[in-house]
Amino acid sequence: MKIDLSGKLAIVSGSTAGIGLGISKALAEAGATVVVVGRDTAKVEQAMASIRQRVPAAQLRGVTADLGTVQGAEKLFVAEPRADILVNNLGIFNTVDFFDAPDSEWTRFYEVNVISGVRLSRHYTPDMVKQGWGRVIFLSSESGVATPADMINYGVTKSANLAVSHGLAKRLAGTGVTVNAILPGPTFTNGLEDMLKDATAESGRSARDEADAFVRKARPTSIIQRVADVEEVANLVAYIASPLSSATTGAALRVDGGVVDSLAI
């Protein structure tokens, strides 16, 4: 089986670091032209340099835009009016007690984690429908089906990602455009390292060992009993972005290490 995305244009939101950067590398490696999008020009350029280290012949374009805002989305639409593959990866997370999260924090999470993907999907899918082919992928989370007590606002937005992706898949039935959601579990990214930095300093463990310990403590149902690597998530996204996945749509695909203890989803 060979994943070949030659001739396809992929836009990956929030792609300057973490899972988004890993996805961009995987898509570039499969031959897609990848649009890297982030809020900081220097970070966009650094991300493209990182991709080229792995894929020297990568076809890349960069856009600096805050996709959590209407203005940022419009800036992207002007720079890149169409796409064959849209990966709605942009997202923020933190740990906060339910009673300490004000309305403004709920609104901020919803705008970035949910509405950004809605805006991009609304813009890019009509052209996909016209050409009879396209891939829309939402990065949800295992937290969308097993909401953590200390990340309720985050979990709610990830549940919303599932609802949007499933509904949009039905809306685009028969068009050749598939829409799916990917549900990563805890994944070893800079964001997770930052979240655990105090615990890492206190324990004296390496960042990776601390992350694995976090999984065993905070996500005890994990079957792999460790964090996932970014590449493990990106590999699934690359397959779903490819022509090989044409019979998969409206799905919620887990790469959570078995955290969700269920026979379904």
Rank of each mutant, 00 (worst) to 15 (best):
A101S: 11
N89Y: 04
G91F: 02
D97R: 11
V78G: 11
G91D: 05
N94K: 11
I92L: 12
V96L: 05
L86P: 00
A79Y: 08
P81L: 04
I92C: 07
D84Y: 04
N88K: 00
N88Y: 04
V78Q: 14
I85V: 06
N88I: 00
W106F: 09
N94Q: 06
R82Y: 10
L90G: 03
L90C: 12
F99W: 13
S104R: 15
F98K: 10
D97Y: 05
T95E: 07
A83C: 10
V78C: 01
A79G: 10
F98T: 13
A101D: 06
F77W: 10
E105M: 12
R108D: 11
N94W: 06
T107F: 01
V78N: 13
R108G: 05
P81Y: 08
E80A: 09
T107I: 06
A101G: 05
E105Q: 15
P81I: 14
I92D: 09
N89H: 04
F99D: 14
I85R: 00
N89L: 08
I85A: 12
A79C: 02
W106K: 15
S104I: 14
D97T: 11
A79F: 02
V78W: 01
E105F: 07
A101K: 08
W106T: 07
A83K: 08
T107A: 06
S104T: 14
D103Q: 02
E80R: 06
N88D: 03
F93M: 15
A101Q: 10
W106G: 14
F98I: 15
V87Y: 00
F99H: 14
R108A: 09
I85L: 04
F77K: 11
A79D: 04
V78E: 15
L86V: 10
W106H: 15
G91S: 11
I85H: 03
F98V: 10
E105A: 12
N88W: 00
V87L: 01
L90E: 12
A79E: 13
L86H: 04
F77R: 12
V78M: 00
I92E: 12
T107H: 09
N94Y: 09
F98H: 13
N94S: 02
N94D: 08
E80I: 11
T107M: 05
S104W: 06
T95S: 14
F93C: 03
N88P: 00
E105V: 13
T95N: 03
L86F: 05
I85W: 02
A83W: 01
L90N: 07
F99N: 15
F93S: 10
N88R: 00
T107L: 08
A79I: 07
R82F: 03
R108M: 09
A83V: 09
F98P: 01
T107E: 10
S104D: 13
T107R: 15
P81E: 10
D97G: 09
F77H: 14
F93Y: 12
T107W: 09
W106R: 14
F99V: 15
N89A: 01
F93A: 10
D84A: 03
R82W: 08
F99G: 05
A83S: 02
V96W: 00
V96R: 06
D100E: 15
E80Y: 04
N94M: 13
E80F: 01
